[in-house]
Structures are given as structure tokens and as C-alpha cells.
């Protein structure tokens, strides 16, 4: 049942801070553990996280920056979308990052191939290495599968500790949905999660996208999250 006058929803970004603590590890517990300790490890730390879309790379990178900042370590995060939308601006954004205690470069794939980008990443790497800081990289592929143009950068990044992020299994996805819903102020009944997992898209990115649509409809209609609502919104 929908209300006669749907609630008008304004498109404000809603900050849901991505923290390491809210990451649902599933089969990725080892990398989570490594990230939790990387700001206190001795010497230079270079980690390379790879995996398909929706495995939580961005969450982990933003989470480790947050974690570092709480420990008073200056941290910077750079998304690959910057390089994609405006390559020149993306290159400028890389400058000066060598002075940080932890730098997280997301979607490295987007930076490679841009004129001057590999040299700029190399500069950041060298500065962080010299200062025994930390560099965390996320990419769709492992470093050995990435066609670097600059050998010096390739050999350095191929020596990073590499972690493949695996997709969550069903209990993991369930846990993730419940946790995301709770962050947004909803209680997600078990039957709704089960229904979503049985009938909806199963990869995490699509699942979260479905949830966002359901949440939007629930707020607009001022209804609780129920299976009928899910069916209607997703057209199942």
C-alpha cells in the first residue's frame, strides 16, 4: 500500500563512512587483518588488492585511510574516476602525495596508459618508500597482468604484497545487506534478504544497487522493507 502523497526525496549524498570495522570479511579476513596493522608495520609497506568489481576494494581503501587518520597518520585517497573524467586534473591530483603517511590509489587501471601518469605514480612510490610510509593500491588485475609502460614502476609494484579479494558467499552477502541496511537506519527482515539472494542479482555491486532502489522506494512510500515491496521495485 502506498501513501497518497509520496515523500519528496532530495538527492543529498548520505555519508556512510567506509570503515574497516564495517567491512564484511568473508574469505578476505587476511587482507583485512593486514590493513588493520599496516600503519604500524616496520618499514615501507606496499599492498596490492585486486579482484572483480563489488569485492570491496574501494571500501577497504577508504577504510584504511580512515583507520590511519584515527591513528594520526596523514592519509590520502585517490579514485581512478579522477583520471578517467579529466586526465590532466588526475595527474595534478597525484602531485604532493609523496608527503603522506599512507596513500591509497584506487582503480590503478584507470591511471595506466595516461601520458605521464606512470612517472607520477613512480614519484609517489619513491617518496613513500624513502620515508617508509605505506602505499595501498587497488586494481582489477594482479600486477603481473597489468601492462606497465615503465619497467621501474612495474618491478616495484610487482613486488607488492598481493591480495586477491574473493566474492562473498551467500551468508557473507546476507551479513553485508543487513549491515548496510542498519547503517541506513533500516532493519532488514531475514525473509527479505533471503528473497533478494534467491531472486535478485547475485553479485555484490548489483545487490547493493538493488538495495538502494528498494530503500529509495521505502522512504518515498514510507513503508517498511517487505518482500512485496522488493517484488514491486525490482519487477520480480
Amino acid at each position: 500500500m502506498s501513501v497518497p502523497h509520496p515523500q519528496l526525496l532530495l538527492d543529498f549524498p548520505v555519508g556512510t563512512a567506509k570503515a574497516l570495522a564495517s567491512f564484511v570479511p568473508g574469505p578476505n579476513a587476511e587482507v583485512l587483518h593486514r590493513l588493520q596493522g599496516c600503519t604500524t608495520e616496520d618499514g615501507f609497506v606496499c599492498l596490492w588488492l585486486y579482484g572483480t568489481s563489488g569485492t570491496g576494494k574501494t571500501h577497504l581503501l577508504q577504510g584504511v585511510c580512515r583507520h590511519a587518520a584515527r591513528l594520526e597518520v596523514a592519509a590520502a585517497y585517490l579514485p581512478g574516476s579522477l583520471a578517467e573524467s579529466d586526465p590532466e586534473a588526475g595527474l595534478q591530483a597525484l602531485r604532493g602525495l609523496g608527503g603522506y603517511g599512507l596513500v591509497a590509489l584506487d582503480d590503478l587501471d584507470c591511471w595506466l596508459g595516461l601520458p605521464g601518469a606512470e612517472e607520477a605514480v613512480f614519484e609517489v612510490y619513491q617518496s613513500l618508500y624513502d620515508r617508509q610510509a605505506a602505499l595501498i593500491i587497488a586494481c582489477g588485475a594482479p600486477p603481473n597482468d597489468v601492462p606497465f609502460g615503465l619497467d621501474d614502476l612495474a618491478s616495484r609494484l610487482r613486488a607488492a604484497s598481493c591480495y586477491r579479494l574473493h566474492e562473498l558467499d551467500d551468508p557473507g552477502k546476507e551479513q553485508l545487506l543487513v549491515s548496510v541496511a542498519r547503517e541506513r537506519g533500516f532493519e532488514l527482515p531475514g525473509e527479505v534478504t533471503q528473497f533478494l539472494l534467491r531472486r535478485g542479482d547475485r553479485d555484490v555491486a548489483a545487490l547493493l544497487n538493488s538495495f538502494a532502489r528498494i530503500e529509495h522506494a521505502a522512504l518515498a512510500d514510507q513503508r517498511r522493507l517487505t518482500v512485496p515491496l522488493v517484488k514491486r521495485v525490482l519487477g520480480l
Binding site: 567506509k18 574501494t58 585511510c65 586534473a89 595534478q92
Partner: peptide, 29 residues
């Protein structure tokens, strides 16, 4: 949003200045 916060605000470092605060950005961009 998490992307906005992490990309633009996270790298700012605060320094006490005369009668105020200076936020240091890593670059002009």
C-alpha cells in the same frame, strides 16, 4: 558521500595559524 569525503577532505591537514586555521592541501588541484 564517502568518495567526496575521502578524495577532497581526507587529505587536508590542519595547521594552527594566526587567529585561525590553515588547511594544507597536497596540490593546487
Amino acid at each position: 558521500s564517502s568518495d567526496q569525503f575521502n578524495t577532497w577532505i581526507r587529505p587536508l591537514q590542519a595547521r594552527q595559524a594566526d587567529g585561525g586555521i590553515t588547511l594544507l592541501a597536497p596540490n593546487r588541484y
